[in-house]
Design a binder for these strands. Structure first.
Lengths: 211, 211, 211, 211
DNA sequence: GATGAATGAGCATTCATTCAT
DNA sequence: GATGAATGAATGCTCATTCAT
C-alpha cells in the first residue's frame, strides 16, 4: 500500500518560504554529507553551509535526521525525474528499456556521490522516514518493472513472469554499482564502456526466442 | 599491487593474547554495530559486550576505528573462507562457477547483516584502513574473475576478455544485493528461488556458442 | 510604607486595549504555568494560548517575567477580592473572623493551583516586582490582622497585642496549607472537615476569658 | 505503603566514592540553588562549585534533576536527623512535644534557605523522585503525629483522634512558615519571640481538660 | 498596531581517550 | 597486564527577544 510522503513539521508557516529554505538546507547538507558523512557533519556546519543561522535552520526542521530525510528525498526525486524523462519516447518496450537503462547508467554516473550517500546513510533515518525512503527506492525500481511487463505484452522482451521483479532489481543494482564500486570499476572501464557492455549483458538475456 | 594487511598496533606484546582478545572484541562489536550502527555504538558498550574493561580494551586497539577495521577484516575473512571452500571441487569452470555462485548466494544469505554492515560503515574507516578493505573486496571478486578466466581457457564459459572483470563484479553485486535489498526481495522470493533464477540469468549469458 | 503597584510599560498606548490584552495573556499563561511551571513554559506557548502572535504579545509586556508578575497580581487581586467579600457582613469581630476564615479556606480550595503557583514561582520575579508581590501578600494578611484588632476592641476575641500579626500569618498559612499540602491532606480530610476542625483550633485559642 | 528510596544510578561502581562525590555535588549545588534557583543554575556552575569537571560530575548522576533530588534528600535527611535528636529525652508526651517543637523552630531558623528551597523547587523533580520527596515530608510530619498519639495515651495532651494528623501538619507548617514568610515575620519577631508565642498557641490548644 | 521570521548565546549531556594505581 | 575514574571539547537543540514589513 502506497504511503504518503512524511510531513516534516516546520515552525514557519509560509509554505513558499519553507520550500525555498529547505532547498537551501539540502544543498548545503548534501555537500557536507558527501564529504564527511552524516554523523561527522554538525548541525552548525550545515547551517553555515546553507547560509542560515542555526536558530533559523531549526525553524524549518525538527532534528538533524530531518535534514538527512530531506536530502534522501531530494536525491530520489532527482533520480526519479531523470529516469522518467526517457520513458515515453520509444515505440517498443525493448527500445524503451535500452534508452532507460542507458539513461540510468549515465544518471548514476553523474549522481554517483548521491547514490552512495543514500546507500550509506539512509540507515540513520528514524524508522518512519526510513521506510518511506525504501518505498521510494522500490517505486524507482518499478520503472524498470513496468518496461519489462510492457515487453512481455508487446513481445519485444522475453522475461519470465516470476523474474520480472528480479530483473528490475538487477538492472537498478547493476546501475548503482557504478557508483558504489567506482573505486574498482573506474580503473578498468569508462562509463561508456561500462554502459555498452552491461547493456549487452542485460539485453542479450532478453532476446525473444524466435520461431 | 597487493598491499600487506595493515598492522594495528597494540600495547600488549604477547601475540597469542592479542589475537584472542581481538577476537573477543570483534564478537562483541559486530552485534552492536549491526544493531545500532558504528557511530551510535560507544566504546564503553563495546567493552561491556566483549567482557573487557574499557582500559583493557584500549591495550589492544588504538581507536574506535580500529575496532571497525577488525570487524571488517573479520567479515571479509569469513566471507572469503566460505567462498573459497567450494572452489576446487569441480572439473569444468562452468561447473565451478555454478557451485561458487550458489555458495555465494547462500553465504550472503547467512551473513547478510554483516555484508550490509560493510556497505554502510566501511566509509568511516581512516583512509589507509579503508583502502585495504576495498582491496580485500576486490580480491574476493577476483575469485569469480579467475573462474571466468578458467572458463575462457577450458571453453566451458563464453566471456569476452574485456568483460571478465565486469562479470565478476556483477556476480558479486547480484549476490550481495540479496543482503542490501532484502527488505524488498524477501517479499517476493525465497533464497532458493532467488538463487535458482539469478543463477539462470548469469549462466545463460555465458553459454558458449556452439559450432 | 506602602508602595504603588509597579507599572509594566507597554508599547501600545490605548489603555483599554492594554488592559484587555493583558487579561488575555494572564488567562493563557496561568493554565500553562500551573501545568508546566514558569520556566518550562515558553513565550511562544503563552502567545499561542492567549491567541496573540508572539510579536503582538511583546507589545504589551517587556519580558517573560512581566507575564509572571501579571499572573501573580491577578491571583492576588482575585484572592483579595474574594476575601474582602465576607468582610463587612458581621456584627462582632468574632463572627467576622469566623466568616472570613471559612471564606479563606473555601477560597484556597477553589484557587489551590493558583496559590501553589505563587509559592513556587514568585521567586523568579525580578527584585522590584517580587517585593511588590510580597507586600500584597502582607496586605492580604492584614485583612485578618484588622479583624483581630477589632476583636481586641470589641472584646469578642482575646489576643495579645504582640501576637496579633503572628495569628494573622498563622491563619493565612493554615489556609494556604490546604493548597500546598493537599497531596497529604486530601487523603484524610475533605475541605469541609478541614475547615471545621481548623476553625475550631483557631477560635478556641481566641475565646475571651470570662469573669 | 512505604516506598524505598529511589536509586540514582551512577557509572562509577565504587560506592564509597559515589557517596563522597555526591556529597560534594550536593554541597556545591545547594549554595547555587539557594542563590539562583534550580533552573537558573547551569550544570557547569554546579560542576565548578563542587570542584569536579562536568564530565566527572555526570559519572555520578544521570541528569540535572538527579542533583535536585540529591539536594532535597540531603535537606530532608538533615532536617529529620535534627528533629529526631530531641525525641527521646522526655518523660511526658507534653514535654516531648514542647522540646520537639522548639527544636523544629530553631532548626527551621538555621535551615531556612533549605526549607524554602524544597518548597520552591521540588516541583521540578521527575514524578517518581517527587513522590518520594513528598513521602519523606510526610514521614517527618509523622514525628509530631507520634508525639500527639503518645500524648493521647499518657493523657498529657488533649487531641481529638481525628485531629491528630491535622495538628501534626499544622505544627510543621507553622514551623516552616518561619522560613517562607521570614521576609514579613523578621520585621516583627525574633526567632525567640516567634518560638515562645507559637509554642504557647500550640500548647494552649492541647491542655487536657481537668476533672 | 500586528506579525512572525530571524537570531545566536546558552544549555544539558555525551563519549573517545588517558593515565595513575 | 588490568582497571575504571577523570577529562572537557564538542554536539544537537532551545528560546527569549527583536525588528523589518
Amino acid at each position: 500500500m502506497k504511503r504518503n510522503p512524511p510531513v516534516i513539521p516546520s515552525v514557519v508557516k509560509d509554505q513558499r518560504l519553507v520550500k525555498e529554505r529547505r532547498q537551501q538546507i539540502v544543498e548545503g547538507a548534501v555537500r557536507l554529507f558527501i564529504k564527511k558523512g552524516f554523523h561527522k557533519t554538525t548541525t552548525r556546519e550545515i547551517a553555515r553551509a546553507c547560509g542560515l543561522s542555526i536558530g533559523t535552520m531549526y525553524e524549518y526542521i525538527q532534528s538533524k535526521e530531518d535534514v538527512l530525510y530531506l536530502v534522501c528525498e531530494y536525491i530520489h526525486t532527482e533520480l526519479e525525474t531523470r529516469l522518467r524523462k526517457s520513458l515515453y519516447e520509444s515505440d517498443t518496450a525493448r527500445d524503451s528499456l535500452r534508452k532507460c537503462v542507458e539513461n540510468l547508467f549515465y544518471t548514476v554516473d553523474e549522481m554517483s556521490s548521491l547514490i552512495v550517500l543514500i546507500y550509506q546513510e539512509a540507515k540513520s533515518l528514524p524508522k518512519e522516514l526510513m521506510s518511506y525512503v525504501l518505498q521510494k527506492e522500490e517505486e524507482i525500481t518499478g520503472i524498470f518493472e513496468n518496461i519489462l511487463i510492457k515487453g512481455m505484452e508487446d513481445g519485444t522482451l522475453s522475461v519470465d513472469e516470476n523474474t520480472v521483479k528480479l530483473m528490475a532489481h538487477d538492472i537498478m543494482v547493476i546501475g548503482e554499482m557504478w557508483a558504489f564500486r567506482r573505486w574498482a570499476l573506474k580503473r578498468h572501464y569508462t562509463i561508456d564502456q561500462y554502459t555498452k557492455r552491461q547493456m549487452a549483458l542485460i539485453l542479450d538475456k532478453l532476446i525473444p526466442r524466435e520461431g
